[in-house]
Design a binder for these strands. Structure first.
Lengths: 226, 226
DNA sequence: AAATGTTGAGAGGTCTGACCATTTGAGATT
DNA sequence: AATCTCAAATGGTCAGACCTCTCAACATTT
């Protein structure tokens, strides 16, 4: 690693971000490993600690670093999930709003179903039945309502998880949690559709599964077959 | 907006990030609108300018803000290009990353095709043909190579755009741009598959379209019909 | 009057150096 | 051997100074 060279059009702190990424790559840092201390890095790169810290914050917010008071900055283990969170914030900012997010959720899950069936993957039927049962529990007072909601989320997350694509799983989880509270579909109707959904998955009938999912996700505005 | 209150377990700058997000929402800032000046914000929130700046950097790196020297901080219009950078870096860190992102890209686009066909939407064939032609241009020296790549990206972005879901469009754009340079499929092979892809879209044959897309996206690991 | 040049206010960019807060482990105490 | 104490290391925060960029009002020139 060498001192920062001023380049045009770029702000110093962004250059430092680049250099830090470079450092991570060159030193083949593994998740969990620590970076040099702020004061040390700022000396090496010949920038002020303030700038160095701005760069560290950028990387932290990007999910690349994990900064702990009194300990140091560590290469983050799961660097994708923070990014996906930001994605949802960005999405919620852009007007389209809930309906668009609901649709994305539907498309993601539907695609996962189809791909799973195409591959001949085995869906975790038993697990799904457990979640389904938990989600269908009559909602007593307290927080058992949120427990049912959590179970319902897990139901769908488990389905997408079948593909074994961790990034996809996290992405889908994001949208599922976002969409669930606003599906506009009654709880008992959802329970009913989940039964159809499960049955379709048992027989690897992706068409039927997607149909049930459409109902579950409140996706039937300009539909065709209705 | 009110002064920051110290809370437990949270670092000041993260609280400021929260407050700034809140500010954006409460004031219904539209993309392109400006935030108050750094010095002003730091006075209002009663935090140092250094901390305030760290928070701004976080939001900038998250693609939420667009900070311009001498002008100010603006709510970003396209909050995805910074995310793209981070995503690709994060993916390069974790081995399985790229392949997973490629797969997500495939699933998103495939889902868009299917939904488009289901709705009977008209795909913008003429536009697609133009992009296809531009993407197939022999890559002369200079930067016409990147132009071809851009055209190829636009080709796929336009397809997803057919659904009219802006959030989905941005999301897909993110993954398409990320996946394109690493598809592992030769350029002439891609051109060939694009022709098939286009033909399938003309006749609203989602099955054929998805097949061509699989080839384009380099998705045929544990396939079935091969 | 139109084009051009000047300048100053406002905004972000960077630096310095100080002090606070948390974590951790070495060394003293029991 | 277990516990306690404390200092070093490291991140967190602050204040104030100065630099650079942008833009628009204003002055100058054509």
């Amino acid at each position: 690693m060498k001192p920062i060279e001023k380049a045009e059009r770029y702000t110093l702190s962004k250059l430092v971000v680049q250099n830090l990424k470079q450092y991570i790559i060159e030193h083949k840092l593994a998740p969990g490993e620590r970076l040099p201390a702020e004061r040390e890095l700022s000396q090496i790169m010949k920038v002020s600690r303030a700038i160095l810290r701005e760069a560290l914050r950028s990387l932290e917010s990007a999910g690349i670093l994990d900064i702990r008071h009194g300990e140091g900055a560590f290469l983050s283990a799961n660097s994708l999930s923070p990014l996906l969170e930001q994605l949802s914030f960005a999405a919620s900012l852009s007007g389209g709003g809930r309906q668009e997010l609901r649709e994305i959720r539907y498309l993601l899950e539907a695609a996962a179903i189809e791909e799973g069936v195409r591959r001949g993957s085995a869906f975790p039927i038993e697990e799904l039945e457990r979640w389904h049962a938990a989600a269908a529990q009559p909602q007593q007072a307290d927080e058992s309502g949120s427990q049912a909601a959590e179970a319902e989320a897990q139901f769908h997350i488990a389905i997408v998880g079948t593909l074994g694509n961790e990034s996809l799983g996290k992405l889908a989880e994001l949208f599922i949690r976002q969409a669930l509270p606003h599906s506009g579909v009654k709880a008992d109707e959802r329970a009913k559709q989940r039964v159809r959904y499960l049955q379709a998955l048992r027989s690897s009938d992706s068409t039927a599964a997607k149909l049930a999912l459409r109902e579950l996700a409140g996706q039937s505005p300009e539909a065709i077959g209705r």
